[in-house]
Amino acid sequence: MSRWDILWDHRATIIRGFENTLILFSVSSVAAFLLSSAIVLVIQTHRGALSGFFRTIVDGMRMLPFLMYAYILYYGLPSLGIRLDAWTAGFIALITYHAAYFAEILRGTWATLPKGQTEAARAVGFGNLAMYRRVILPQLMLRTAPVLGNQLIVCLKDTAFLMIITVRELTAAASAVQSTYFIPFEAFVVAIALYWLTSMAIEVLVARIGLVAERRGLGYGHVDSRR
């Protein structure tokens, strides 16, 4: 029996790992985006302690390696009496870590939006929240699409770190199959191909959003020309 046949016989393990990776990635990236939108609203519209607090968290988080952060949640917190299982720790780590990166991307772009927009929105009676949801956030999403896309790929790759805190995702599945049957080449080539396909799917999606942005005159080149 060839090595590829062995891998094919154990495809169920790999597929389950891939499903777990996709679940971790999709749930975390959507939740991280929602969380980051809320954080940016606070940072940009509140003056005072809360805004400063979030800015510090966002800056600090971006100086921490993802695995170190996952270690704090999974191995560190039990010392304080907070015991999380690997999946919960993994989700919390992915969501809050990437929310910090998304928040920084959105905040940076908001700063480049023309001030007149906010004034016009207020003049026609928009409150903070309605203005953010209807005027600011849609523009930020369209304008930052390429950068957000890169960050989404980082988020996808960070799911692999979670195998170290015992989450059974794709790399852990490939590692389990290879160690039992000693087929490291085949197992990891398949894993890498699956990560690659997923990241290309993300890029296609981001390019679609880019087209919408271009049609509405919010393209990437447009942002640069205004600076």
Binding site: I153, A160, I164, T171, Y195, S199
Partner: peptide, 19 residues
Amino acid sequence: VSLGRATPLVTLVLFIFLA
């Protein structure tokens, strides 16, 4: 470049070390 951008380091280091 496309593969390098998409491959997690955990996966790549296992692949290189074991294969």
